[in-house]
Design a protein around this nucleic acid. Structure first.
Length: 370
DNA sequence: AAGACGTGGGA
DNA sequence: TTCCCAAGTCT
């Protein structure tokens, strides 16, 4: 069965395949900011940002992040608040907390040098099998597989592999294939070329086979099944959660914000006080009760719901009822996870997009009133 | 193994 | 609207 899965490798001219693939990448690769040099730190940052995230989205974040934290030493020394702020809006925020944690370890345990062995680099927080292979091959020229979604899709087609790429167990099949195919002369370009091919030519839908530099090596194309591959089972739909949130302002024009717990969803990001509710019809009462029992705040929320915000995550959906309310200057948080800040100071804190939407609602509404 | 973990874009 | 993503990792 195992031999059968990769049977097409026997009929692949590996040297010619490498040459065609790397030759194409050399000519056609996109000009991307993390391709200016092979600084292991910058390669690392880019690979973490690119996890589950589009190139076009990453570019401005990468430029800003490297501007703010150009080296291992600067990121290791940075306040977490600033680091999270630089990641604000990118999503999967544990990536950047793990990155800074790992960078601190590199700074302290490896004298600031990103390790260059599979064993050492894989121990770093947030560095899984893909990222380890990407850094080792791109920054250090070490022939390790870097198997991401692109590579699994491309190889599924080229080698006509009918394994479900959604299953974690499938990854090792593709790693095995890459170990047989990878160029030892230029593992960096080989790995990047496979991903670039997946992004530009061998796309999820409507692959541009007529433009493909390795079409002659592609068993899926020759079998006419390139549109049937890869096999990928779909995931379950998301569940819905109802929330009520409050934008609370005092006589000084200062706002109450709350820092989320250090684990779980949107960890360590800031938000407007909110709670999960069972029933929209009594949302305001539930929120007032929550503010009293959790934060010791006696608040009269304005009567009407200001807006209803829908926010979709990968695995769940928030339906947020937004309320406005006044607090007194004498109301101080009874909780160290809360702060009272001016509108100007708000810009220093990292908020998830869902709560940026709440703030936008407040600004829009206030603009009408003023 | 399967679910948690974000977001914005395209069909 | 709904679904599927896009250079994955952690638990």
């Amino acid at each position: 069965m195992k031999e059968n899965t990769l049977k097409h490798i026997e009929h692949t001219d590996i040297t010619q395949f490498q040459s065609d693939l790397i030759g194409w990448f050399t000519e056609e690769q996109r000009d991307l900011p993390w391709r200016k040099d092979q600084d292991p730190y910058k390669v690392w940052v880019s690979e973490i940002m690119l996890q589950q995230t589009r190139v076009d989205t990453v570019i401005p974040y990468f430029l800003n992040f490297i501007d703010k934290f150009p080296t291992v030493a600067t990121l290791a020394a940075a306040p977490e608040e600033e680091v999270l702020k630089a990641w604000e809006g990118l999503g999967y925020y544990s990536r950047v907390r793990n990155l800074q944690s790992a960078v601190k370890e590199v700074h302290e345990q490896y004298n600031g040098q990103v390790p260059n062995t599979p064993n050492e680099i894989s121990k770093l927080k947030g560095v899984g099998p893909y990222t380890a292979g990407a850094i080792l091959s791109i920054a250090y020229g070490i022939p390790e597989p870097a198997v991401d979604g692109n590579v699994m899709r491309v190889l599924s087609r080229i080698l006509s592999i009918w394994k479900d790429i959604a299953k974690p167990s499938s990854r090792k099949v593709f790693e095995e294939a890459i170990r047989k195919l990878i160029s030892h002369e230029n593992p960096s370009f080989f790995n990047q070329a496979l991903m670039e091919l997946g992004a530009l030519i061998c796309t999820p839908t409507s692959p541009k086979c007529l433009l493909c530099p390795v079409r002659e090596h592609c068993h899926g194309f020759h079998e006419g099944v390139q549109n049937e591959l890869p096999i990928k089972t779909k995931k379950k739909s998301t569940r819905s959660v109802s929330l009520a949130a409050a934008v609370l302002v005092n006589e000084n024009g200062e706002f109450l914000i709350h820092k989320r717990p250090s684990t779980g969803l949107l960890a360590n990001l800031w938000e407007f006080p909110n709670c999960e509710i069972g029933d929209f019809s009594t949302a305001r009462k539930q929120l007032e009760q929550f503010l009293l029992t959790e934060y010791g705040l006696q608040v009269d929320l304005e009567n009407g719901v200001k807006t209803k915000i829908d926010h979709i995550f990968s695995h769940l959906k928030w339906n947020i009822n937004v309320y406005f309310g006044k607090i007194n200057q004498s109301d101080q948080p009874n909780d160290s996870s809360m702060e009272i800040v001016t509108e100007e100071e708000l810009a220093k804190y990292a908020f998830p997009v869902s709560h940026q939407k709440i703030w936008k609602c407040y600004v829009d509404e206030r603009g009408i009133l003023n």
